[in-house]
Design a protein around this nucleic acid. Sequence first.
DNA 1: GGGGTTGTATTGATGCATTGACACAATGTG
DNA 2: CACATTGTGTCAATGCATCAATACAACCCC
Lengths: 125, 125
Amino acid sequence: MTSVTVSVDVRDPTPPYEQIRRQVADRIGTGLLRPGDRLPPVRQLAADLGLATGTVARAYRELERGGWVHSRRGGGTRVATAPPVAASPGAALRDAARAYLERAAMLGADPAEAVEAVRRAALRR
Amino acid sequence: MTSVTVSVDVRDPTPPYEQIRRQVADRIGTGLLRPGDRLPPVRQLAADLGLATGTVARAYRELERGGWVHSRRGGGTRVATAPPVAASPGAALRDAARAYLERAAMLGADPAEAVEAVRRAALRR
DNA sequence: GGGGTTGTATTGATGCATTGACACAATGTG
DNA sequence: CACATTGTGTCAATGCATCAATACAACCCC
């Protein structure tokens, strides 16, 4: 039951509640967490991460405000039925590919070079 | 004189000094900023971003602590002669490709699919 | 050398994030 | 219906980030 797919880096100046918020939103946006999936109780996640329950509660509150999850007293917190972004691994892969191309362009590489770089990196595995 | 390639998002809970630190470190790591290149004076960058000079000074201090830049009173702040990471666009592109593959793997895509996704995304331009 | 530039340090004030403890409300379960 | 679970709210205390203003120190250039 190591479970939680969330971690907090205490050396990162980004507030812990925001680190949690981002990771959960990302996992929903990529479809790794799907509508209806249950998140850990605030107390449990807080204990796992070494945080106060209020901090995790803050993260869940922000996620709810963004439409990512839905919380109910006694009922726990679950991924919303209609998250704010298309949530499928396929769409996420397209997004990642597009972001990578943009990054490559910033580095002065044309699309062909970008593709080639991925091909080469894939071989190195 | 638009100049500075740095921006701060006030809605991001990440402290401004850290946002600046990351962007500058990234530009050095990608070779977009090269050893000896001059960074804006703290006062000017602070004015451009709407921050207090102390906040920018904090960012520069952290960058110096990390070996990214070197500051001298009256002499300004310049990119260090030997930044902590290999600083060339080529190396940065390889890093980006590797990171993209890792992300794709997290999304359940094998390397071949990952390459194909980039190829398709490149066509859409 | 002199004057402007630039990084650095300090101050007090303000707001936010977090902690730890506690209580309460709403839901689920036997 | 009881009881545990779970989210939520409150509280005071603590630390950090930021601001604005000021002063100082080291460097550059004419």
